[in-house]
Design a protein around this nucleic acid. Structure first.
Lengths: 120, 120
DNA sequence: GTCTCATTTCGACATTTGGCGAAACAACAA
DNA sequence: TTGTTGTTTCGCCAAATGTCGAAATGAGAC
C-alpha cells in the first residue's frame, strides 16, 4: 500500500506526468527538463525526487550533469505497470505531443548553453 | 489529460483507494462505507464524489439509501484500466484484507441500525 | 402537507503540496 | 587549493486538500 500510494501521489501532478512522458525512449538531464517546463531548477529537482522515490525514474551522474530515465525491466512490477498505463493513456495526448516537439529543439542545444541561460 | 489527472488525483488518497477495494464485487451504501472507515458522513460523501467525478464509481438511489458500485464494462477505458491496476496491485494487501473482514460484519447489520448509530 | 432521515453541500480549519529564491553540496577545472 | 557550475536542500509563501460539524436537500412515510 505504501509503495502504491507513493506512485499515485507522484502521478497526481500533471508536471510530473509530463516529465515521465518526456523521458520515454531517452534519458534527460535536469537542465533539459527544466528548460522544457519553464520551472525553477529547484522545483524540477523536487519533482524528480518524488518520481525517484516512487520508483518511476532512475538517475545517474555523468560529469557535471545528472541524467534521469525511465526504469527498464528491473523496475518493481507496480511501477512498471503504472508507467505502461501512463504511456498507453497519454502517449498520444496533446500535451505529450507538444512536449515532444519542443524537446526536439532542446535536444539540439548544448547542455552548457542551457544551464548558462538558466543561471541568469 | 484532464480525465487522466482526475483519476490519479482520485487515487492519491489512501481512503479513496480503500473504498474502491471495498466495492469489489458488491455495491455498498454510504452509511456502510462510513461505518467501515470511521469517518464523518460528509467526508465519505466528498470522497465518493471525487471518485464519481473520475468515473471510478457509479451510484444509484434506492429508497432512502444511495448505493455506490464499481462501473462495469460500460466504463471508459482509462477508468477501467485504473481499476484493474488498483485491484491487481492491492487486492491482496493487508489493508484490503482487513477491510474485507470488517466489511463482512457490517454487511450483517441492518442499514437503519447503522445510520442510527452514526446520527448520535 | 408535514415529518423523518440518509445524503450532500457549505464554511471553517489544519495539513499538505507546488512553487520560488537563497544557500549548501558535489564534482570538475584551473 | 580555489573557483565554477549543475543539482539539491532549506525556508518560506500561496493554493489545494482532508476533515469535521452545521445547515440544506430530497425522497419516503405518515
Amino acid at each position: 500500500m505504501r509503495e502504491f500510494m507513493a506512485i499515485t501521489k507522484a502521478l497526481s501532478d500533471p508536471n510530473r506526468v509530463r516529465m515521465l512522458l518526456a523521458l520515454r525512449g531517452r534519458e534527460l538531464c535536469v537542465c533539459q527538463i527544466t528548460e522544457l517546463f519553464g520551472l525553477a531548477p529547484s522545483t524540477v529537482s523536487k519533482h524528480l525526487s518524488v518520481l525517484h522515490n516512487a520508483g518511476l525514474v532512475r538517475s545517474r551522474k555523468n560529469e557535471r550533469w545528472v541524467y534521469y530515465r525511465l526504469p527498464g525491466q528491473g523496475a518493481p512490477v507496480m511501477a512498471r505497470e503504472a508507467l505502461n498505463w501512463v504511456c498507453k493513456s497519454l502517449g498520444g495526448s496533446e500535451e505529450a505531443t507538444a512536449d515532444q516537439k519542443r524537446l526536439k529543439q532542446i535536444l539540439k542545444m548544448d547542455l552548457s548553453e542551457i544551464c548558462r541561460r538558466q543561471c541568469q
